[in-house]
Design a binder for these strands. Sequence first.
RNA 1: GCGCCCUUAGCUCAGUUGGAUAGAGCAUCGGUUUUCUAAACCGAGGGUCGUAGGUUCGAAUCCUUCAGGGCGCGCCA
Length: 574
Amino acid sequence: MNIFEEYINKITALILKNQKFLKLENLNKFKGIVVESPPSEFNFDLSCNAGLVLGKMNKINPIALANKIKDLILKNLKDFENIEIAGPGFLNLKLTNQSLILNINKILESKETYGKKNSNSTYNIEFVSANPTGPMHVGHCRGAIYGDVLANLLKFNGNKVTKEYYINDFGNQINNFAKSVFLRIREIKYNEKFISKENLYPGEYIIEIAKKIIDSYKSENFNNFDQSLKLVKTESLKHSMNLIKLDLKRLGIEHDNFFSETKLIENKLVDKAMSYLKKNNYVEEGFLEPPKGEIDKNWKKTKRLIFKSTLFGDDTDRAMQKNDGSWTYFANDVGYHMDKVNRNYKYLINVLGADHTGYVKRITAAVSALSKNKTKLNCKVCQLVKLYKNGKPFKMSKRAGDFISAQDLLNEVNKDSIRFMMLNRSNDVELDFDFDKVLEKSKDNPVFYVQYSFARINSLFKTLNKKLNDEIILDSKSFMLNDNEINILRKVFEWPKIIETASSKYEPHKIPYYLYELATLFHSYWSKGNEDQSFKFIENGKIKRIETLAIIVLVATVIQRGMNILGVSLPEKM
RNA sequence: GCGCCCUUAGCUCAGUUGGAUAGAGCAUCGGUUUUCUAAACCGAGGGUCGUAGGUUCGAAUCCUUCAGGGCGCGCCA
């Protein structure tokens, strides 16, 4: 249930029925008319801009029109005890106690599903897809959490979601990775000094992987790289994917499907995609202009297969083949996305890091071409994470191998804080992540703040010897909400709207913001009892007013739903 | 040179299908604990929404200009 939706429907139906009386010729499908919550200083439950919007369309004074609509509503709908015209022509509406009770009961009944925006579509979310040449670093965590929470959110609404990881286990970097492991094996086994070179991976984890391989293959001599390549490669990949999966698990993330680039090629999916695109004249042999950026001495103007991605909004056409005629990384990815398209998802989402911004247009173009514009690929880019420690920037350099891994982070900070903090920003702004702040147990740290409100609620129920899901019966004769309660209730009414915008725009960060605001209202109400005895909830071991209990259960319900979607735990006691 | 993102209080940021007096947290200053968890609460100060135009009853939000910051710009992955 969504109270705003409910009343916009009632009000627009009423206006439609009385179109002639209101002298409205143009309704334009009520575009732009909304019911929302008014700014808190007005002390009303709902606000509607019908007078403003329809007034403009029909050239009628908005305040006069709003007044007429007000009379109509009061005469025909019994839900409101008071309506006022405010500002340039807003209708501010106050619900009767009767309808407040009705709406509270609806939420109490819907509990598990409160806020759900019913939908039954299918989604594929590709996220993380970190190169399997080493463990995840902190930067990967942001996209990982973003993708995971997006999946939770879409699932909450009833969609089928596949969480997918594309393993780039093909190409030069994997060979370099295998070579690094091979040389470390030689170092351990034969005391050959490992000399770090440009294309090799220096990290400590390479040694760990080397040791594991030596243990598992005691009879192997590892004398010749070419001979050992296949073994070392598969084994190294297995171990580093395990490292990544372990990190993901510690973050509370589990993918449904791991898609291997090597298998993609073995199954000739790229060739299939290419022949499809050729048939439609989206790919043909040709020449490209040299790149505009840095000069590349390996660049050659030779004939090769070109994808005409400019037909689908890209800035330039893209090469599908390298100098030696083999497929480019992009061509492989096109093959992969052909497979995704063929799996018939309604929506495809790719979560990318900031360093892949330049990739968005071409892959989006590819999906348009592959699906004849039927499947929409949406690429969401997560901006950089800037690390701080003691308020000072913490630099990472991948080259020297001194980057901060997800493990380092997880060893210092618990998963709940990482998840909440990484989501506490819109994905398209840079995020400052301070190791120290995230460990603080105070209002600075929003995770604790929200968790604490839930712990307080639980402690209250413990004192009352009641359970959160015990039935609550409100008596309409004596029903009365105080200012704190009505403010909390109005916030609770907004929850479905938060879910709706967060999921339709793929902006999960709205959830932590909202939960923080809700927790603030609750803490504020709670603390009132410290200043004024009469605001204590409990007297002689019993709740003073049943309304208070109802409101508090609503808060707990929404916090549970919200934190569940965020994948952050809610201790009952802190 | 081009593309994407960003510019809102001293700091970090919410707020964009155009709406009411632009909001939080931190920091600063002042207050609250015999009684349901002070990991909390209450109060005060703090703004030319980067610049200049435009669209209209109305713009932080839409369009254009310019400036500043970030990321990227391969036939690497």
